[in-house]
C-alpha cells in the first residue's frame, strides 16, 4: 500500500529524516513511536506530501507521489489524514466538515454526501452532533469528527498524526476506541502516537524512530517486552515510568 525508499528530508540545513525505508501492507496497522523532534510526524506528512521529501521515493497505492504525472490531490483522497490539532473547519457544521470532500472533490450529489456524512457520524458516535459547530464539541468529539471527515473520501489508508496528544486524558479513550474499530474493520493505518497501550494492543507492527532513522521495529509483543536498541530501552523506560 505504501512503500518508502531511502527517504530524506531537510528543513534548511537541518536534516530531520536521514534515510527511512518502510513498507506498509494493505490492512496493516503500523504505529510509530519516538521522542519529540525525532522526525516521526515528518515521515507521516511526507506520505501525502504535506511535506515535500528532499530525496527518496514514496509510492502510495502504486503512484509515485513525487512523479510529475501524479495528481497529488487524488493521492490525498486515498490517504486521509487526522491531525493532532483536529483542524476542523470552524465556520462549518459538523456535517458540512465531513461532506466537503465528497461534495467538492468527488462531485457527489448533496443528498448522497449528506447520507454518507450522517452514516459516518453515526459510526463515530456523533449522529446527534451533525448540526453543531466544532466550537461546541469537546476535544474527543472534534477528533472523532476529524476521523469521519477523513473517512468520507473512502481512503485506502489513514495517517494519524498524534491524534490523542492534544486531548484531556479522560477523552483519549473515546478516540482510541474509534481507531480500534477501524483497525478491526481492516483499514490500513499509520499512527504516530505516544499511546503505548494502543500500540501494544492494536498495532501489527511498531516502529521506533529516533534521530531521523528507524532504530527498531517489530510485532508489538516482541517490541515492548524485548527491545534491543539501547535508545528504545531508554525511551520505553521513561515512558512506562510515567504511565
Amino acid at each position: 500500500m505504501i512503500q518508502i525508499k531511502n527517504l530524506h528530508k531537510s528543513f534548511g540545513a537541518l536534516e530531520v529524516i536521514k534515510g527511512v525505508d518502510l513498507d506498509v501492507r494493505a490492512g496493516e496497522v503500523v504505529c510509530i513511536i519516538g521522542p519529540s523532534g525525532s522526525g516521526k510526524s515528518t515521515v507521516l506528512r511526507c506520505i501525502n506530501r504535506l511535506e515535500v521529501p528532499t530525496s527518496g521515493q514514496i509510492i502510495v497505492d502504486g503512484h509515485d507521489i513525487m512523479a510529475k504525472e501524479t495528481d497529488i490531490n487524488m493521492i490525498r483522497t486515498e490517504a486521509g489524514m487526522v491531525f493532532q490539532q483536529f483542524n476542523l473547519f470552524p465556520h462549518m457544521t459538523v456535517l458540512a466538515n465531513v461532506t466537503l470532500g465528497p461534495l467538492k472533490v468527488r462531485s457527489m450529489p448533496k443528498a448522497d454526501a449528506d447520507r454518507l456524512g450522517r452514516d459516518l457520524l453515526q459510526k463515530v458516535g456523533l449522529a446527534d452532533k451533525a448540526a453543531s459547530y466544532p466550537d461546541q464539541l469537546s476535544g474527543g468529539q472534534k477528533q472523532r469528527v476529524a476521523i469521519a471527515r477523513a473517512l468520507a473520501l473512502q481512503p485506502k489508508v489513514i495517517l494519524f498524526d498524534e491524534p490523542t496528544s492534544a486531548l484531556d486524558p479522560e477523552l483519549v479513550g473515546e478516540v482510541l476506541e474509534v481507531m480500534k474499530r477501524l483497525a478491526q474493520e481492516g483499514m490500513t493505518m499509520v499512527v504516530v502516537t505516544h499511546e503505548m497501550g494502543f500500540a501494544r494492543e492494536v498495532a501489527d507492527r511498531v516502529l521506533f524512530i529516533d534521530q531521523g532513522r528507524i532504530q527498531e521495529q517489530g510485532p508489538p509483543v516482541e517490541f515492548f517486552t524485548n527491545p534491543k536498541n539501547e535508545r528504545l530501552k531508554e525511551f520505553l523506560g521513561m515512558v512506562i515510568q510515567h504511565v
Binding site: 501525502n48 490531490n73 483542524n87 470532500g101
Partner: peptide, 18 residues
C-alpha cells in the same frame, strides 16, 4: 488563519484554490 486549516483542506484532496 491557522496553517492547519490549509493543511486540512489539502489533506482531503481540495486544491489550493478550493
Amino acid at each position: 488563519i491557522n496553517r492547519g486549516q490549509m493543511e486540512a483542506g489539502r489533506s482531503i484532496g481540495l486544491t489550493h484554490s478550493q
